[in-house]
Design a protein around this nucleic acid. Sequence first.
RNA 1: GGGGCCGUAGUUAAGUUGGUUAUAACGCCGGCCUGUCACGCCGGAGGGCGCGGGUUCGAGUCCCGUCGGCCCCGCCA
Length: 594
Amino acid sequence: MFSNIGEWRRSVYCGEVSTDHIGREVTLMGWIQRRRDHGGLIFIDLRDREGIVQLVFNPERSKDVHERAHCLRNEYVIAVKGTVAKRPEGTENPSIRTGDVEVIVKEFRILNDSLQTPFVIEDRVEVTENLRLKYRYLDLRRTALQKNLILRHRVSMAVREFLSREGFIEIETPFLTKSTPEGARDFLVPSRLNPGTFYALPQSPQIFKQILMIAGFDRYFQIVKCFRDEDLRADRQPEFTQIDLEMSFVERDDVMGIVEGLLYHIFRTAVGIDLTLPFPRLTHSEAMERYGLDAPDTRFGLELRDVTGIVRGSAFKVFSDTIAKGGIVKAINAKGCGGFSRKDLDELTEYAKTFGAKGLAWIRILPEEWQSPIAKFLSDEEKRGLTEVLKPEPGDLILFSADDAKTANTVLGRIRLKIAERLDLIPKGGFEFVWVTDFPLLEYDEGEGRFKSVHHPFTSPMDEDVEKLATSPLEVRSKAYDIVLNGEEIGGGSIRIHRSDIQEDIFRRLGISDEEASRRFGFLLEALRYGTPPHGGIALGLDRLVAIIAGAESIRDVIAFPKTQKAVCLMSDAPSAVDTKQLDELSIKVIKRT
RNA sequence: GGGGCCGUAGUUAAGUUGGUUAUAACGCCGGCCUGUCACGCCGGAGGGCGCGGGUUCGAGUCCCGUCGGCCCCGCCA
């Protein structure tokens, strides 16, 4: 039954057979997508990477070939020789690219059969994700995923083209590297040759790329896997890919300019869209004030308003007490949401609570009155103030969050997104970029009782804020910048500290002792003393970028072999236990925990 | 560490206040069919409801536990 391909070689991809081939003999190799057996005529859709084409087995052409075609089933792999013909008038299929032609089969070889697949290989067939992940090789046969991975390839090519042209040199950095104390949890790799010691997989090539700048490469880039052992999300995998780059003798605008050029080139060549440059910029505090989040979705309005000044002395104690304690009150006018039911509002409140809100105050704007549990506490003056700021009209819904600034903003920022989703305010198919700049350098970690870097400890403070490091460290801004696309952070970078004295000072302020700093980062601190040029860079999340371009819900749909939320590969069943012998060689003993 | 949703033929789903033999569509198998393309028509096979307990005369339906998938909070310099 089976044949080898022998001397047969593909002459054209199934999806590329066109009217140009009419009358010519072609050789195709592919998978059987579907069989339509009319008893007489048999039609088979043959699929390969580029698409499908209809094969015709006609008993009048060859009784033998037609006879043999009866045993063909879905996902069998066959090679076909036949003549391309224009389809008879009226039988064209405009829904496929090859729909004007068909291949009259003269001869075919069955290269392999297939079990019945656990699910049908078709985009419109919805299958649960665990099944898709277990049979990833079948899932990847579907055109949607093939398209995504081909898009990903085109984006990668565009990156290499553009950055090479701009003088960036692609240099590989080690995967077996050193654990760093700050940041995410490391994946560790035991060293057999050095029992009891471990490499860490890189969370990013950060230090290596800085050292490449010290080494004088001037411009570096890499499309590189990074590893972080943290919990997964729709947009987070334990291993993910960064477009990593670093430049010497630059300031912030130079890096941002290169990234804008890079994204322009990516969208131009891989997507066919001309972006408008430059991208708008927001400072971090502006983003927080107007959108409540440091990754604002600027595709729609519905901006947050600060009403702290209006309700400072309010009889509604939740407002006035919060403000008295240093908090703020933010409000949003959800246009046209006045019809939200009590249940809707309760659900919204529950949602708000997941982000730390204690509650969510609301006012329904009716033609004659403001309907709300808090309306009776609001003075006429407060109502006037709110009216001026929020411009409420009958049918609107006003929502408030009162809390410390960060919580109040976050809560209402999330509510803003929820409302926009519900009101269908988010334009489909668009790409809105925005830079977020002027991040604080440090934040205070209550849990650990120390300062932490907002970006990373190598980020340079703003020159004009350096002296505030000693007096009011939380007010020091950094030379960090994030690039946000459609409300998702797709990259972040900064100008780095290029002086060892400042770097040591920052480590001290982060509560990292000189001893620890030298143990963990000693090689960097030493390198910084040997003529380090000013430098900075950025890393873009390739998975996220491609996912957004592809319109994918999750980055799993743009990664060939992704892991589940428990970081398991359902296809290969990694991670798994290993032989005691392997552990012995590594001087590792597994402790069972109850 | 926590919250929510989900798990029923190969697949996707339905399954009433617990009550005869667990439904449907697609897929699969067989037959018929020379212009279909989500081909059509006829016929057929296929599951005991993720797993383990419990309540009950009786459990996909209720309870407890457990495993797995997804979304989210924390976490992700």
